[in-house]
Design a protein around this nucleic acid. Structure first.
Lengths: 303, 303
DNA sequence: TGCCGTTATGCTAAGGCTGAGTATAACGGT
DNA sequence: ACCGTTATACTCAGCCTTAGCATAACGGCA
């Protein structure tokens, strides 16, 4: 993944077969000593991208997950990784390209208030809740409340996977209809592009993990250029977490945690008063147990 | 894993070949629909244990990790899971048994102040730091400080894996000497039992994840009986996290978060004034975004 | 040149939460 | 009745967070 101050991005590989997008993936060869080595060398070979921070996410191995495109019998194991890239303009990208990740999960972007996508989903989701018998109804209502927080207004930016899985269960995403040849998907699906296989689930996993991580580890700086303004940093955090932050408090936080240091330069490119350019202060890694850009408690931008 | 108020436990399977302990493991068969299904049915079959909370931890796949016991060529993939069990007395345990996890990682238990094991490790670790050239020295010193916090006294209960890996790199654990047939391990190794293959690394991963998780999800109740006293709960949390907590504040936290509710009963089994028996309050799962037993900031018990 | 819009940055009051400690209650045993 | 022990209630000071207000420094324009 990569990011600009206004857009979080994921590297996409269009699949030829079924016109749907997918995540980059490659085989595990015995020439690679570790899994991470395999990942890095494979990506660099394919896209000439230099991966920065890399973290294993989850291993997907349901028996029938490759149904339809099956080249293997039994379990096809996919070990998903989250990889961050600073420079968002790869030199060799024959098939791959960057794309705003909210194209796939539009209900996750609360920067401009309640997402339109969510307003579209909401009634269908409520109908799904009502469709169950009393005990099931209760259960479903609680899950919807826990993940989307429609009633209480308690949006939790990290529950990305839980929300996607709920939509899947409620048959609101096209992926849920793939294996049912007997029925047709209803007109009222959730907005957002589907992906190949379970790749949208992987994307949701990655986003959730990244949103959680930036709060206690300075991984955000893996996505920033060498020097940047505090507003750039804030905008990037907002892009990833999908929520808006209080400007003054954000700066105080970043500075009091000692996450950045002055470069001595300023930029007038921001419009108003020139902004200082700062850079990541490596030393925090030693000083503090869990440095990161803490976000305020889960809240809506506009209630 | 399971726990009593004074002991966190891990299920151990003694390996016959080399007299070392190992974690339970089994093959992934094509009859299992999902990975979790495979795990549950395999464990229940082997030990008659009913697994409660289950969470995928990490997939280990370094090419040479099964070196020596290799039955496979190339990568042997092991998908490690964290599984919690409430009832710590399985009915059918031919080879498996429960064991205090601090037998394997004794430096992780700070409940009685600075662990003896750490005092033994400390000088050897310092010697390792000094052994490098200036840049390497600096790097090593920072890593030791970050993970063990010897100088600053900042112990972070979650960095279990990082600490184990540091000891591995510093060749302070027997596992690091296995593949070096040319040299003999020194007398001054870290206390703590080694395990088969990379199982101790897996154990460290599991403990770290569990310690982190109890702070924002009520997983601790997966390890408690149906009803319990607040002190039992506190002792169990202390056992898992390896640190001691302030009693009054712990109760305030648990009650104000609405994590428990009264059963109406009391027990005199505690010695002094009878204690109320409480049970987990399921409803918090819906009410709160991230309920859990928050621990105080990383601190030493005795400075 | 002086005003205006815009962004950057500094600062503070109010409220909530945390860490730490004091005080009181209720049991069993002597 | 007293003592040791554990349970439980309550308080207080310091710290952190939230939400604002206030001021600074640019470019553009009348």
């Amino acid at each position: 993944m990569s990011a600009t101050p206004d857009q979080p991005r994921v590297l996409i590989v269009p699949a030829k077969q079924n016109l749907q997008d997918g995540l980059p993936s490659g085989p595990l060869l015995s020439e690679h000593r570790t899994l991470e080595t395999a990942l890095r060398s494979w990506v660099e070979q394919q896209t000439a991208l230099k991966l920065g921070y890399v973290e294993q996410l989850y291993t997907f191995g349901d028996r029938d997950r490759t149904k339809g495109r099956a080249r293997v019998k039994g379990h096809a194991l996919s070990i998903a990784y989250l990889a961050l890239v600073r420079d968002a303009s790869p030199s060799r990208m024959d098939r791959a390209h960057w794309r705003d990740w909210y194209a796939y999960l539009p209900w996750e972007d609360w920067r401009e208030g309640t997402p339109k996508a969510l307003k579209i989903i909401e009634p269908t989701l409520k109908a799904w809740v009502r469709a169950g018998g009393p005990p099931l109804k209760q259960f479903r209502a609680e899950r919807v409340e826990m993940t989307f927080g429609l009633a209480s207004g308690a949006w939790s930016d990290e529950r990305v996977l839980e929300r996607y899985e709920l939509l899947f269960e409620a048959s609101l995403v096209p992926e849920a209809w793939r294996e049912r040849s007997d029925e047709k998907a209803p007109a009222r699906l959730a907005p957002g592009l589907p992906m190949v296989l379970d790749h949208r689930r992987m994307l949701a996993t990655a986003i959730g993990r990244l949103r959680a991580k930036i709060k206690y580890r300075p991984v955000i700086f893996e996505l920033m250029p060498a020097s940047f303004t505090l507003l750039d940093l804030q905008k990037t955090v907002e892009a990833l977490s999908g929520i808006r932050l209080h400007k003054q408090n954000f700066r105080r936080l970043v500075e009091s945690e000692g996450l950045v240091e002055e470069t001595g330069e300023v930029t007038t490119a921001t419009g108003g008063r020139p902004a200082r350019l700062v850079r990541f202060r490596q030393k925090v890694l030693v000083e503090r147990p869990a440095p990161g850009v803490r976000l305020p408690g889960s809240k809506r931008v506009s209630p």
